Simulated scan of single mutants.
Amino acid sequence: MTATTGPGNPDGEPGAGGKAEAAEAEERFESWRDLITLTRECEASTPHTDGFSAGLRRLELGPVTFLGTSFPSSRFRRTAARVRSSDPSVFHLTLLLNGGLDLSGPHGSGFASGAGELSVLDSSRPYDLRAFGARTAGSPRPRVDALGLDFPRALLPIAPDRLRRLLARSYRPQSGTGALLADFLHSLDRQADRIPPATAERLGPVLVDLVSAWLAEESEATDALEPDTRRRVLVENVRAFVRRNLHDPALTPTVIAEAHHVSVSYLHRVFTGENDGETVAAWIRRRRLEQAHRDLADPALRALPIHALAARCGIPRPDDFSRAFRAAYGLSPRDHRRQARSEDEWTQRQAAVDAPPTRGHGGPLA
């Protein structure tokens, strides 16, 4: 689900419509607030209701809700009285992309968070969260941009006493599972509109596993994770490692196992079990061929020789590449490139035929 509350006035002031436009802006704010509070039950307010504009993407991933939002500076309060009257027992994870967060919690707890940082809140604890917008090149007024996950507390397999000191803090994920989690959220945001419902249903548990592993690393309590969770997180880490190093012809199961501090036999057993029977080596080969298949059809890479393109995908021997490509796609790399080029040229010619006629240097004919 993608919802946009409307453009409003970029400077945050009522336009020529006066009261009518101000009323529309207030409605946009209320709509956005209602969508936010579907899973983040709190009191939301903003000093920018005049000309208010915001965007919100919601994606249901089984028991997990993904949020992508952009909005002006706002405040979110969850009081102790509200916690007592209604507690959905949900964790709120936020990856801040732009702007800043300042949270005040009970007993003087709190944190300040900047762009690129992760934080986790518990719906069972009161908080007062202020979000401050920052200007970007594409926005004429300060904005807060963030990605988030909301999921039931019961899904997180970490003991409450271990979790307590991890909440209401900010973290900058530069490596390990935290960085993998941040990358996953960015990818999910880019692909949100193209994820089939059946796939979305399966992604929720994967994300919870990543959150669990990340928090376990932060608390140095990886051993507290369930074995199934550790296996799934290892496989996600391996996939991310392969994608980053696909160009390296020396990328082998042995190298991957050493990088993840496991034995080759354990890597094979876990990866095959979590990847529908496909081995690590087969998955690397398939990803390389898929990348080469895309690159061969890319007009921007048309001048790059086929052997150089194959080497970029981690297959430096032309004969090996040609043989593997033909086995996978039923035609040679050269024929695939020629076919893609012909289809591209036909599309361009068709677009030219369909374009409206022009006269001189003027616009289209009336």
Rank of each mutant, 00 (worst) to 15 (best):
G6I: 06
G6E: 05
G12T: 06
E13W: 15
P14R: 14
E24Q: 13
E26K: 13
R28D: 02
I36R: 08
I36Y: 10
T37F: 11
R40C: 10
E41Y: 15
L56I: 08
L61T: 01
P63W: 02
T69W: 12
S70K: 09
S70D: 07
P72Q: 11
P88M: 02
L103R: 15
G110Y: 03
S124Y: 00
Y127C: 07
D128T: 07
F132G: 12
G133M: 06
T136L: 14
S139Y: 04
P140H: 14
P140R: 13
R143D: 07
L149H: 04
F151L: 01
F151V: 02
A154V: 00
R165I: 03
S175K: 08
G176I: 02
A179E: 07
A182L: 08
R190K: 13
A192N: 05
P196V: 13
W214G: 08
L215W: 01
A221P: 06
D223V: 14
R232F: 04
A240N: 12
R244H: 11
H247R: 09
H247D: 15
V255C: 03
Y266V: 09
L267D: 00
T272E: 03
T272N: 04
D276Y: 15
D276E: 15
T279C: 06
A282K: 09
W283C: 10
R302D: 08
L304C: 08
P316E: 06
A327F: 10
A328D: 06
D335C: 14
R338F: 11
R349V: 15
P364T: 05
P364S: 10
